[in-house]
Design a protein around this nucleic acid. Structure first.
Length: 442
DNA sequence: CAATGTTGTTTTGATCACAC
DNA sequence: GTGTGATCAAAACAACATTG
């Protein structure tokens, strides 16, 4: 198979005279590096607004080109004409091939859904080529075609193609398995405590707490400053900005989809941040940063890891994954699907509980929606929150019922920081060790 | 016309090889 | 063992379209 590498590049576009960033594909042909012209043009034109998108599209086109290179019809053909020779059938074959590979590997992924989604993106590429006047044999009008992997005929076809022995699992079963997850219910206090204990580096513990308290996404958290600028000039370390107010506002810039929004932060959460991260670690880590990068750490970077490297989204995700595995070892009831992003459900749910208390169980949905939708929308940065909102209401109701005896604690929760809130509850399951407290962080 | 589904885009998460 | 970057996968989100 033809090796293709993906590179991210940043340069000044001649067309717009602006700086653009996107991915490009480079093939390795017998030691020579060959740029894939058409895919790269596509990536330049269509994916310069977000690197994440660029990475995703690049990896799909790359996968497809690698698949093509194994097909007999492309034998001896130049890379530059691949797009010209491809037709809809090749895209179908690619989808089938991925399914075959999956069976062969006895793997649960990629599932049919992903295969289908990826094929749609690929069609987007060919659609663009057609639009630009590059000749291809792909008719995008047929873009709703989807391999019916559940039909008997298709299934037996795929099973014959997968040469390795197949056990009783057919695709239908595999598909089901991949969707098997334990309930997506809100992370419990016990799970939070255990997870926080499992992080090796305390910086992640603090980021997690801040996430619970603010519903910020990882991409926003890593940009949280030591000293803010623009609308966030007032953000300083807690002791410098302590003015008796319970909350402060913070503007999140360039969040998902390049949107800004203004959120509320509880001062107690900032206090916890100072106590558990800034005072004990920040100074020392700043020095490491300076040593490493040759210049001092700018005030808009707050979160640094043990080595003085700025924390990124990826690091948060993989550290949390490690912490989760560790937690599952300690307590087998710790649910495997929990991830850092779960913190985002915490805020709206607690907000609803705090606002309505016992009334949650009697009041009708519309009334509650009107009363809290705006606040949740602002904090979470959603345009249309209705569907999600109902989910949160349900979640809040269940929690309310489970915690009936604790309803008073819950109602006074908004006055508490996340740390105080968690420690104020007695744990239903006894998951966490009783003497653990967030005050010990570090 | 609201509920539900589709499509396109943008994000987070998992895994694995590798360095220390 | 821990941490990391590269790569692949999945989920989330938003705008729009369809259905009942």
């Amino acid at each position: 198979m033809l090796p293709i590498t993906i590179r991210e590049i940043t340069y000044n576009s001649v067309e717009t005279t602006k700086t653009v960033s996107h991915c490009i594909l480079i093939a390795d042909k017998g030691g020579k590096h060959v740029l894939l012209t058409h895919p790269n043009l596509f990536l330049y034109k269509k994916t310069q607004s977000s690197l994440s998108t660029s990475r995703r599209y690049a990896s799909i086109v790359s996968m497809f080109y690698r698949f093509l290179s194994t097909q007999s019809k492309m034998k001896g053909k130049e890379l530059g004409v691949y797009h010209h020779l491809v037709d809809n059938r090749d895209i179908m074959l690619w989808q089938v091939q991925r399914q075959v590979d999956r069976l062969e590997g006895q793997s649960i992924k990629p599932n049919s859904e992903t295969i289908y989604e990826d094929a749609k993106i690929l069609l987007g590429y060919f659609h663009w080529l057609n639009e630009q006047g590059f000749v291809t044999n792909v008719q995008v009008g047929l873009r709703t075609w989807r391999a019916n992997f559940k039909s008997k005929r298709m299934l037996s076809y795929i099973q014959v193609k997968a040469k390795v022995k197949i056990d009783a699992n057919n695709i239908r079963v595999l598909d089901k398995k991949s969707r098997q997850r334990q309930s997506d219910f809100l992370i419990t206090e016990g799970e939070i405590k255990l997870l926080l204990e499992s992080y090796v580096d305390p910086v992640y513990r603090c980021i997690f707490n801040l996430a619970l308290g603010t519903a910020m996404r990882p991409m926003d958290l890593v940009k949280f400053p030591f000293i803010g600028n623009r609308a966030n000039k007032h953000i300083l370390s807690y002791s410098e900005m302590d003015n008796g107010h319970k909350t402060t506002s913070y503007t999140v810039y360039e969040s998902k989809g390049n949107k800004d929004r203004k959120i509320v932060i509880n001062m107690e959460d900032l206090k916890a941040l100072e106590e558990h991260y800034i005072t004990p670690y920040y100074g020392e880590r700043k020095k490491l940063y300076k040593k490493k990068y040759g210049h001092s750490c700018p005030p808009d970077i707050l979160f640094l890891n043990k080595k003085g490297e700025p924390v990124t989204e990826k690091m948060i995700a993989s550290r949390t994954n490690d912490a989760k595995k560790k937690s599952m070892k300690v307590d087998p009831t710790f649910r495997p699907h929990l991830s850092f992003y779960q913190t985002r459900h915490w805020w709206p749910t607690q907000h609803i509980i705090a606002t309505f208390g016992e009334r949650l169980l009697t009041e009708n949905l519309e009334v509650m929606y009107l009363a809290t939708a705006q606040a949740i929308q602002n904090q979470m940065g959603h345009e249309d929150i209705e569907t999600t909102y109902k989910h949160y209401i349900d979640m809040a109701r269940v929690i309310m019922m489970v915690h009936r005896g604790h309803s008073l604690d819950l109602i006074k929760a908004p006055a508490l920081s996340v740390g105080q809130f968690i420690t104020s509850l007695s744990l239903p399951t006894g998951i966490a060790k009783p003497d653990f407290s967030l005050q010990e962080a570090g």
